[in-house]
Amino acid sequence: MLKIEHLTKVYENGVVALRDISFEVPDGQFVVVIGLSGSGKSTLLRCINRLIDPTEGRIIWNGIDITAANDEELRLIRRRIGMIFQQFNLVKRSKVITNVLAGRLGYTNPMWSLINRFSPHDRQMALAKLERVGIREKAFTRADELSGGQQQRVGIARALMQDPELMLADEPVASLDPATSHSVMKYLELLNKEDGITILCSLHFLSLARAYADRIIALKDGLLEFDGDPADIDEQRFKDIYGEDAVRVEIA
């Protein structure tokens, strides 16, 4: 259970990214966060694993106050929260397998990991996760030689190395073409259905959100604009979220 209470984030330059956001996510839900660029989606996701420190409010996860955790506690929390990114954020010059193994760093002895030593168990695990996202044969190529969709799947494999209970996906398909977008979203759906991983995913397109979400949360200028069933978003709601001039774009 993830509980967000009165979350507010004001950046140092005075920009207010989130205003008093509160909601709860039960375990195993597939939640999609929608909203325009700059509406606070990324900030919200990054506050949950404290890549960004919130200004006010609390985030409670499985009874632990994430916002009050010190460095060591935060590390233990973070390693159960996977995250994938719009730009994939792979180390481009490193091999795919190294990128995937990096997901295991929270569990390995810091000393050994510094000289690039992982246990055989971790290596087997990395290959298995790559198998799962269908790019086992790319394990020993350089990350930047892969296509965008493949890179995002490496990102998913990396997050899976953490044995996550919660997965944060920050616009995971915004840099991909429609077909590849669906394939990546399918993997997320699979993780949600098969492994019971709670997913919090931000998306631009409502059509994609409708196709995969159990529940949609919409942000507008840092405020919670909508929280509910995908089917409840009618034309009026849509205009509330995206503005009067918005036109629906379907993504096949």
Binding site: R75, R78, I81, M83, A102, L105, Y107, P110, M161, Q162
Partner: peptide, 19 residues
């Protein structure tokens, strides 16, 4: 990006720098 991603996995600061 990459260091942010490594940090998000629960790596220590030293690991984040190394990876």
């Amino acid at each position: 990006g990459p260091s942010e991603a490594v940090q998000a996995t629960g790596a220590t600061r030293l690991q984040m720098i190394a990876y």
